[in-house]
Write a protein that binds this DNA or RNA. Structure first.
Ligand code: ZN
Ligand code: ZN
Ligand code: ZN
Ligand code: ZN
Lengths: 132, 132
DNA sequence: TACATAGTGTTATATTATAACAATTAAAAA
DNA sequence: TTTTTAATTGTTATAATATAACACTATGTA
């Protein structure tokens, strides 16, 4: 569950847009979409994005430079994220698998080192694209 | 094991540089370092990088926009990669764990979908930085 | 109130990456 | 070997992504 954060004006505008979007949004596409709401400069977007990522309301899809709202109650504030990405239609889905997150949270490398955070991106074809 | 690829002149210059580097290199840092060898434009660098990634000689660290040589004989040509990243010194190490790669290669999401490719990035502190 | 902290607005600039086109080289097919 | 096809190169220009710096404003808290 997400802790309630009181989003500021810009944060709320940008979160709402991302939250409503069925696919991840890129920063400059966000910018174009919120200009009518008074957000005029890239920095205003990036600052809101940074904060939203930090508090776990959205995640960055690193391989796509795009942002998606978190819909996974088990992902601990941006510390443990996993996504599936369709290489044809670019549909991105957050994976919420207890098995996977337990496995990765407990993973130790050969030096016995544990990690505080991870990001995993799976690539393949989504159902719809598999059938074509 | 890597299939032997006959690298072209530019590919070789750029691979050699990355391969010798203890840490991942960024595209423009590569560019500055190979200008004395006649590679003058970003595109020449990016083209070589694209090819080297494609054939699995190097990997891109997505969260850092940087490139590292593959030192993991079990990673199947860029289809299955895992890294640990130190959040202080930015040291990056390719993880080669049979357990991990088997687990991820066989991972199915709740729709039963399997993936053809993945990239995993772990974050934490390396040994050296933990002791500080 | 006074102070600290976080957020905003703005301009400029840095960093990362690709488009388009002509020329060259290497590979493979005839 | 010649032909022809694909891959690579060189080059200029430009697109896309992201941050620096600074002045100002709102918010919380002592
Ligand atoms: Zn999430
Ligand atoms: Zn798809
Ligand atoms: Zn590798
Ligand atoms: Zn370190």
């Amino acid at each position: 569950m997400h802790k309630e954060h009181n989003l500021t004006k810009n944060q709320k505008i940008i979160f709402d847009l991302i939250d409503k979007s069925p696919q991840p949004l890129k920063a400059y596409s966000i910018l174009y979409n919120v200009q009518k709401k008074g957000i005029k400069a890239p920095l205003q977007v990036y600052r809101a994005l940074d904060k939203l990522v930090e508090i776990g309301k959205i995640h960055k899809i690193e391989s796509r430079n795009a942002f998606i709202a978190c819909h996974n109650s088990s992902c601990q504030v941006a510390k443990a994220t996993a996504f599936s990405i369709c290489e044809i239609c670019e549909k991105v889905t957050e994976i919420s698998s207890t098995g996977l997150s337990k496995y990765l949270a407990n993973f130790k490398d050969k030096d016995g080192m544990k990690y505080s955070k991870y990001n995993l991106e799976f690539f393949g074809l989504c159902k719809k694209c598999t059938l074509k």
